[in-house]
């Protein structure tokens, strides 16, 4: 027979206390590290923006008035808007097939989305260079087939930048749309079809409106991402089509104008914060992430 239960007493655990303290120690490490390596340096950058080359708000005045800076900002906004539009449309199509297609379609769509997502931005920009430059695949084919007599200039201008950025951003645009499409009740769609609405009509009048939050979230995310974009524009714009991020790089490493670079950085943070605040106001971010 097993021993009686009340034989030995064990007593309370010796080291048990201190969950709260321990928990805060665990929490604190990362914010402390980021304070030292990110927040304080950011304050340093903000300080640069009002002290270099001389104290004052001169650099912000330049951001606000200099036509050179303005043309860069306008080009950035224009390109980003176009990129956002194209990336969201492509992402929407792919997601539609990825979520609602049959199994082979789903797998193919997944490969098209996931593989580029994991491939380095450099390899992808380089790939577009190979496709688009004057003696690249596209121009060679078009000339061989007699469609073009002269090569089209597709890189070292806005066209190349837009193509490269759209390509980079489509996978990011997919995720918010996918999370909304997954949550859709497809019985509504079947019901619409059942009530005699055609395929196209069901798509435009039922499906698209129901996925609007995903489209919207995706657009904001892509736009915010594209604003600070550096590598793709630098490689495919070839120094001609300069966007704000490359402009900042040039200010630091070629013009040695740290003050302007810092002022532009602070301005970008402010713009992005405003955009994200608008996003949070208009949709629940958690829904887009899940």
């Amino acid at each position: 027979m097993p021993a009686p239960l009340n034989a030995a007493t064990v007593g309370p655990a010796p080291r048990a206390r201190g969950w709260r303290t321990g928990g805060w120690v665990l929490i604190a490490l990362l914010p402390l590290f980021l304070c030292a390596a990110y927040l304080v340096p950011f304050l340093g950058v903000a300080n640069w923006s009002i002290t270099l080359p001389e104290p004052g708000l001169g650099q912000y005045a330049r951001v606000a008035t200099d036509p050179g800076v303005h043309s860069v900002i306008w080009r950035t906004l224009r390109i980003c808007a176009l990129v956002t539009l194209l990336a969201v449309i492509l992402a929407y199509l792919l997601t539609y097939v990825w979520i609602h297609g049959n199994r082979p379609m789903r797998i193919l769509a997944e490969i098209c989305i996931i593989v580029p997502f994991w491939i380095s931005v450099l390899s992808r920009a380089f790939g577009w260079l190979v496709v688009l430059y004057n003696r690249g695949i596209l121009n060679t084919w078009a000339q061989d087939l007699g469609i073009l007599s002269e090569p089209l200039t597709l890189v070292r201008n806005d066209v190349g930048v837009v193509i490269g950025m759209v390509h980079f951003l489509v996978p990011f645009a997919v995720f918010p749309i996918a999370s909304v499409m997954r949550g859709l009740d497809t019985r509504v769609l079947m019901a619409a079809r059942g009530m005699g609405a055609g395929r196209l009509r069901t798509f435009w009048e039922v499906f698209v409106p129901m996925t609007m939050p995903g489209i919207f979230g995706s657009a904001v995310i892509v736009f915010v991402f594209s604003l600070g974009f550096f590598v793709t524009p630098a490689l495919l714009g070839g120094g001609r089509s300069i966007m704000i991020a490359e402009y900042v790089y040039v200010q630091i490493f070629q013009a040695s104008n740290w003050g302007l670079a810092a002022a532009l950085s602070v301005t970008m943070i402010v713009i992005v914060s405003l955009l994200l605040l608008a996003l949070m106001r208009l949709t629940r971010v958690e829904k887009l992430v899940r």
Partner: peptide, 17 residues
Amino acid sequence: LPMIVPPVVSAVILYFF
């Protein structure tokens, strides 16, 4: 923050650091 802030801004911050 480092994920949300535009990469070029993070780059300037880390360049400073």
